[in-house]
Design a protein around this nucleic acid. Structure first.
Lengths: 340, 340
DNA sequence: CCTTTTTCTGCAAACGTTTCCGGCTCCTAT
DNA sequence: ATAGGAGCCGGAAACGTTTGCAGAAAAAGG
């Protein structure tokens, strides 16, 4: 079943393939009536230009690539949406790939992108190591990194993790809480290290030292780990005054553990998340959290790649100011403590 | 900055482009040492084959297309993931497109797919009308529809909406509720009509007639509409015994309205959703709902397209049995009613 | 040692566009 | 009348692969 080609259209319209190409591109050197004839022929034959051939002959593909760890994670879904929207506004399509937290897949995704001769790419890299391995592949391709800053010489847009965690901890402190714990620090993820640092700094400024519980290295175990840790915390007495979670997803796990252990949030312990994913705004959840302005990040990232595509090849960095979103999981500490 | 081509590799390895092509394809007719030489040359030059050229010359692209209304909707995100996974297992990549509830975008997405000469496509169509408009474009392309059955002669896999809604209503009835309302029926979406029908049938079997509140035609207003309707319901007395929502997203809006109006779920009114999205399983939410087995649907859909690609071109239909997922938003009706 | 296979590799023709370079027609100004 | 321009359009060469076919070299068989 051969697909109809530009030649078939040309034959039917009684012109040359070159003319068809120009007519469909709305170029001025084609007489209106010829253009109309070509259009009609296309319609009759149901002609759809072959993108591969176009890509071979032309130069710009007008496609952007995006690789994120996992679109089914609402945080990345949000970013991906913002990227897609901004791209569309500028006449670009976007191809999306998940790395699923695996280095191999991340590399494959990028390789697939350069194979398609995509115009530019925005990457939410897994780690500093994998980012280093991108470089040879990316060779001359416009590219901006998203979310965390671990590369020198590359453009990136990220939110200030240290500052965000500081805001969260500060909020807890202001509410009178003193015994704070941060769930999900360290490991070799830069993001975690930065947030843990912000948390610590806030406490130190008050002469306090909080507890930072380090998460396992493998990010995939994170959620179960958070649940287990929280459960343990909740079964001991005295309870901590408040918990700052590495992410909203972590916070949700903590909430789950709280239900299991019969401790009430926020009456018995306050809780603050990070990311401001959609889940956090759900009824009955109302999670106080920190927004990274993912929409703005996505938009900015696209604008940066586009600028690179247009020729402005110098690495630029943008650090976005996070914002505390106050909902209902943090309340002031009552001096006498609770009934527990 | 010319990208390195197969000719460059051939020159460096001292062979012809044809040999390079064959070597990289691991074809048996190439001597191992030649293959190794070619590989080495590729590595040195950082050669990545041009997908466009490949697509032009070869025939199968090993790419599947998926179009869904909105991946940021957790229901579709789940399906998309299942599809991607199954495709990967079979050596296929997938391209994802959102129609964003707009007919034009849906058509564009499909056109883009056929432009790319994709091997097959799975579509969650917006309506019967748009589906009719796909046909000329799809001409000979393996294709299966997902979620709802409104085409004759096309393959599809869907869950039995009528049965699912029946299950939900039946559950409510079994718990002793008598005054039931279904939120989000009718409109010209087949899915809605089917679910409303299932709801009605369950009631009629008990000699009851429930209330079915018809949603607005434009699906985008759905959420706000659900909130408004629920609020009105909750402000009147007596309260209905229970509410069956068109979807989990709708149910969430109802939950929100309940909070606003100060009515407790499930103590004052029971609530059942539909879809079993991730949100439903969240702590504090625990929404009783109906699962459509979206993972299974996604998997099945891919298997069907693959079969079509391999030559088995007859339309096949698969109707999946939905399943009631009991959580905590429905409780038995206490005879005396509540304190309200 | 000469044929016949077998094994490996190269040539060149696709694949479906875009675009450069010209060429033809028809006007307009000289 | 003729030269010089516009305005339109066609020819053909790319773009980077794959693949059918044929040919050369090596191995096998006589």
């Amino acid at each position: 079943m051969r697909r109809t080609t530009i030649r078939d259209v040309a034959a039917l319209a009684g012109v040359s393939p070159a003319t068809v190409s120009r007519a469909l591109d709305d170029r001025p050197e084609i007489r209106p009536e010829t253009r109309e004839r070509v259009r009609e022929a296309c319609r009759q034959l149901g002609y759809v230009p072959n993108a591969a051939a176009k890509g071979l002959a032309g130069q710009a593909t007008h496609v952007l690539g995006v690789v994120v760890p996992d679109v089914s994670n609402p945080y990345f879904a949000g970013i991906a949406n913002a990227i897609e929207e901004t791209a569309a506004e500028n006449g670009y399509r976007v191809l999306l790939s998940n790395s699923l937290q695996e280095e191999e897949r991340e590399l494959q995704a990028i390789e697939n992108f350069v194979a398609r001769r995509i115009d530019g790419v925005v990457i939410s890299a897994l780690s500093r190591e994998t980012q280093a391995r991108h470089a040879p592949l990316l060779e001359g391709m416009p590219c901006v990194y998203l979310g965390v800053n671990h590369g020198e010489g590359c453009s990136y847009v990220a939110a200030d993790n240290e500052r965000g965690a500081w805001l969260a901890a500060r909020h807890l402190l202001d509410l009178g809480h003193r015994d704070l714990v941060f769930l999900g620090g360290h490991a070799d993820s830069l993001t975690r290290v930065q947030r843990a640092a912000g948390f610590r700094r806030a406490l130190e400024e008050q002469g306090l030292t909080g507890r930072v519980l380090p998460a396992p290295t493998d990010a995939r175990d994170m959620r179960q780990w958070a649940y287990d840790q929280a459960l343990e915390l909740f079964r001991r007495r005295p309870l901590p005054h408040a918990i700052a979670a590495f992410s909203d997803m972590t916070a949700l796990k903590i909430l789950e553990a709280a239900e299991e252990a019969g401790v009430r949030v926020p009456e018995d312990v306050s809780l603050v998340g990070y990311d401001n994913i959609e889940y956090a705004a759900l009824p009955r959840i109302h999670l106080t959290t920190v927004s990274q302005h993912k929409l703005r990040q996505g938009r900015l990232a696209v604008e940066r790649v586009l600028r690179q595509i247009r020729g402005d090849r110098e690495a630029a960095a943008e650090l976005i100011e996070p914002e505390l979103i106050v909902r209902s999981t943090c309340i002031p500490r009552t001096e006498g403590g609770t009934s527990l």
